[in-house]
Every structure is written in C-alpha cells, then in structure tokens.
Design a protein around this nucleic acid. Structure first.
Lengths: 129, 129
DNA sequence: CTTGACCTTCCCGTGACTGGAAGCCCCATC
DNA sequence: GATGGGGCTTCCAGTCACGGGAAGGTCAAG
C-alpha cells in the first residue's frame, strides 16, 4: 500500500501519517523509488493511533500506549494509569468549560441584543459588575 | 506604572502584556529610557482582556470585544453575537469531551489494572472490540 | 561602585498538525 | 515519443497564545 491507500483506509490525512513517521510512531518500509510502503501491521497501528487520538490522548500518551500494546508482558495496571490520568485532564477541562458556559449563558441571556449600546456582557468584562 | 506593576495588578504575566502590545491590543506609552509606561486606561484594558480570555474568548474575539467596548455607538446585538458564537464553540467542545469521558470511563472501569497483560482499553484501541 | 532587581529586544520552542512550493514517478492517452 | 494528470517526495512556514531564556541597558539602595 502507498500512503494514499492507508490514508483512505485509516481515515487519517497523508500529512498526518508522514508526521507520525517523523516523530517515530510508525516506521513504514520504502520502495526503490522512495515511496513509503505500508503493510497491514502499519495500517493497524494507524487505526490504533486514530482511535487513541479521537479519545483525546496526547501523542506522547499514544507512544506509551502503542508500546504497551506491543509489549506482551505488560501489566494492565500501566495502561489503566495512562487512561486514568487522561480522564483527570478531561474532567479538569470539563469543569473549566462548564464554568465558562454558565457565566457566558448568564451574560448572553442578560443582554438585550438590540441596537442600543448598553450591554451587560461588556459591563462584566469591563469590571463594572 | 511599569510593566511589573501592571502585571501584578492585572494578574497577567509581563510576557503576555508585551505580546498584547505586539499584536496591537494595547498601546502603552514609552518613557525616555524605553520602558513602557502604563496608565490606568491601559490597566483597565488588560483587566478586560484577562477576563475575556478567562471566559475562553480567542484573541481575535478579544480584539472585537475591545473595539465594541470602546465604541459608544455600538449595538449590543453585535456583542451578543460574538458571545453566542463562542458559546456554541464551548458547547461543541463540551459534547466532545463528554463523549470522550464516557468511553474512557467505561474502558477504565472494565480494566482490571493488575499485573496481567489482558486489557480492554488496548483491545478497544486495537479495534478488537 | 557594585549589586541585584527591573526593563528591553530577539529568537526559539510548544502540540499536532496543515498548507504550499518544488520537484520526482508512474500510467494512460494521443 | 510527448504529454498530461495524479500521486509521491522533501522542506519550509504558519497556526494559537504565549513561555523560556539569552544578551544587554537602567535604576535605586547600600
């Protein structure tokens, strides 16, 4: 398979796949003409990466997870720890976003949204609450 | 006031304040020695920016909001639109994060987290659901 | 006069890509 | 055999909102 094929089959942009090779997540072979040659194993890794990224894992998390995936003597505790740490990051972000949403919703609701200049949103941002 | 003073009083790092000048959000005067000289008005703007950023508005949003703030003939509808657009972005991110949290929570709960290699998290990422 | 805290500019790095330019390679068609 | 078009390659630059750190000027205190 060439890069275009794995791009289609993995759903990842070719650019991203090249990037993943750059940073050492995958190591496809090369044809004589310099083209990357992907095997099923590479495609499988890319799918793994796509799913992990979709769950919000960082690239470094992905590197760790991929190593654990390929390590038959891993302890599931190590995998679980990576996932749990990530879950904590997600919870933190969620809390931040929920707080923002609450404040913003209040402000938006309080704003008339007409032609007049008077605006509770700007009053709040300006510190004149 | 020098930059250190406004940094303390606004809660923004000096680096950030210089950056805001770079991109034209503020325009403090200069002393003869080249030091930035901030007046109350500048500090007020920085507080405005700090609050807007804390609500997750992008820098470009902040630029728009600041312009509206200083425009006495603004329509509150314009402010409201910026806020509402931002709210939509937040809702989208929230939905994404909540979906991630759900999947991750399920996977973490299903993982024994012991010394054995068997792991539902890796099975899922590997596509062997 | 020296010390140390401040200030200045400048450049590089972050994360995870994305866009684009310049240039091969391969296959099909005329 | 020329040509056209699509796919592949590398490399460079940009994104967003700063942060780190170097090299050097400035200022007030002791």
């Amino acid at each position: 398979m060439n890069i275009g094929d794995v791009a289609t089959r993995s759903g990842l942009p070719a650019k991203t796949i090249r990037y993943y090779e750059d940073i050492g997540l995958i190591a496809p072979q090369r044809d004589l003409n310099g083209y990357r040659r992907f095997r099923e194993r590479d495609l499988h890794k890319l799918n793994f990466l796509g799913r992990a990224r979709a769950l919000g894992f960082t690239i470094e998390d992905c590197r760790t997870l991929l190593a654990l995936y390929e390590d038959q003597s891993r302890a599931s505790a190590d995998v679980k720890q990576v996932a749990r740490d990530h879950l904590v990051r997600i919870e933190t972000k969620l809390a931040d976003l929920i707080a923002m949403r609450e404040t913003l919703t209040e402000l938006v609701d309080a704003c008339a949204g007409d032609q007049r200049p008077d605006c509770p949103i700007l009053r709040d941002l300006g510190g004149e609450s």
